[in-house]
Simulated scan of single mutants.
Amino acid sequence: MIRTALTFVFLLALTGPALAHRVNVFASVEEDTVTVEARFSTGRIPVSGEVRIEDANGQTVATYPLGADGTMQFSLAGLPYEDGLAISVRTGDDHEGYWLLTPADITSGGEGS
């Protein structure tokens, strides 16, 4: 019993630091504009970073700097979004998170969802 408890505490200690710096990414669509928001799991806002947009085949189609407020916006115009997009954020200190925009997310973006 003690051995199991110690093993659990040890594993928890190993995962704690990794979870503390995870970047949570959220993206929403309104009409043809995508808004991306990034925050660490602690609530802290990344001060620098890059937003990478990939198509359904995993090809990078655009990159943008993350704003100082942890957000950025981009237009869908000219992007191959019909099959969905993957949006990843890498912070200046190399933490990364992502959000997937499905075709349904994109097409319902201007319909009050």
Rank of each mutant, 00 (worst) to 15 (best):
E54H: 12
D83P: 00
F26E: 09
L66P: 00
T4Q: 13
A5E: 10
L11T: 06
A77G: 10
G70P: 01
E54Q: 13
L6W: 09
H95V: 06
F40Q: 02
R22Q: 15
D69Y: 06
W99V: 03
T33I: 15
L19M: 11
N57F: 15
F74S: 00
H95P: 03
P80E: 01
G58S: 05
V25C: 05
H95E: 07
T102E: 14
P46Y: 05
L12M: 12
G92T: 02
E82S: 09
E96K: 10
T7R: 15
R52A: 00
M72H: 03
E37A: 11
E30T: 10
D55Y: 00
M1C: 14
G84E: 03
Y98S: 05
V61Y: 01
G92R: 05
G92H: 04
W99D: 11
D32H: 13
D55K: 00
R44P: 00
Y98M: 06
P46A: 09
A38D: 02
L12K: 06
D83A: 12
I53W: 04
D105Y: 03
E30R: 15
R52D: 01
D94R: 15
T4W: 10
D105R: 00
L76I: 00
L12R: 06
D93M: 05
V47Y: 11
T91R: 07
L79P: 03
P46I: 05
I106H: 01
T63F: 09
D83F: 08
E37N: 09
Y64G: 00
H21N: 11
E31T: 05
T42D: 07
I53F: 07
F10G: 00
N24S: 08
I53Y: 01
Q59L: 10
F40S: 01
T33F: 11
T107F: 11
A104L: 13
E96D: 06
D93F: 05
L11Q: 11
T102D: 13
V51G: 02
T60V: 14
S41T: 09
V29K: 07
L6V: 01
F10R: 14
T42N: 12
R52L: 08
A86K: 12
N57E: 15
G97N: 04
